[in-house]
Nucleic acid binder design. Structure first.
Lengths: 161, 161
DNA sequence: CTCAACGTTCACCTCGTACTGAACGTATTC
DNA sequence: GAATACGTTCAGTACGAGGTGAACGTTGAG
């Protein structure tokens, strides 16, 4: 892996790490962003200079979060990984889900807690409303974004290798 | 602190922790969400059963992220903290900034890397576009949200205590 | 000036997390 | 069946982050 690529994967690693992923998961993701065809575990381990065990663990972690996906090849027993085609949509969905958790926590608090102050009650109500509004708006924006460019993002294409 | 309140602050703690904050910062935030007037460090430390040092550190961390803010009281040398009035807007702004970092990383990669595959080039371009589009849309939605309810969220009010 | 009440900083410790190499289970190929 | 090539799991380890208590600097009151 050349130096510029390493810079890119490292940077992606930091960003994903800030989102709560292990460092290697981030670098793995960054690397796959630059590969046009799916990669095997050994290939990834070699490129990132980490153990195959780490790649296995982190790849399954990323797959669980739908950031990458596992594929196979006919006549090949190995696992291959690539970024998911509708990556952006999935990441957004994940973000919305997190916000949903926030809104639920606030809602639950409003319901179960005896809130004395009307100010606090208003603040929580507003907070919850804001999340509801924003998730709805983002959902709409997301549909508008996808609509005109269905499948235009990552044309499925036979591998070149 | 009663049990239901503890449940709420703990839950907020977990959620904030998932966003990259220390556990205590999250609980601190959750607690302040429920207080209608600003709290002193000792008050917070007592309520959360943690050291004053931790409260000090985490309060300044949250303040640096504009989730809470520090206030004073005339004739009182102590520091008081409360949630920021325009909390939701600020949190959104922070999220947009993170996405901006992502978009920049991708942009930088597109610029500096020699990308062989047209598929990869298209993917990165689309990825970057998607972030730009979404941040713009969220910005618009945010302005629409704030517009009709300026200052309606947290009416400034003399403290009751 | 002295003393007390603050907030902050620092060294220490603890605990969880991430990574590794080796062992393991499994499936495919001679 | 034996051997090989996979992916996964597991014990061990190193490292970093978070929290604490004590020391520190500062400010204000008596």
């Amino acid at each position: 892996m050349d130096q510029r690529t390493a810079r890119f994967t490292d940077r992606m690693g930091s960003l994903l790490e800030a989102e709560g992923f292990p460092p290697i998961a981030g670098r793995l993701f960054g690397l796959l962003l630059l590969r046009d065809d799916a990669c095997s575990l050994d290939e990834l381990a070699a490129a990132l200079c980490v153990s195959k065990a780490s790649v296995s663990t982190n790849a399954r972690l990323l797959a669980a979060h739908a950031a990458i996906e596992r594929t196979g090849r006919p006549g090949d027993r190995r696992d291959y990984y690539r970024v998911t085609p509708d990556l952006f949509t999935r990441m957004m969905a994940q973000r919305l889900a997190r916000w949903q958790s926030f809104a639920e926590a606030v809602h639950e608090g409003r319901r179960s807690l005896a809130i004395g102050s009307p100010d606090v009650a208003a603040r929580l109500a507003d907070y919850e409303d804001a999340y509801a509004y924003m998730t709805a708006e983002i959902g709409k924006a997301l549909r508008r974004w996808r609509a005109p460019r269905k499948n235009a993002c990552h044309p499925t294409r036979r591998s070149r290798r």
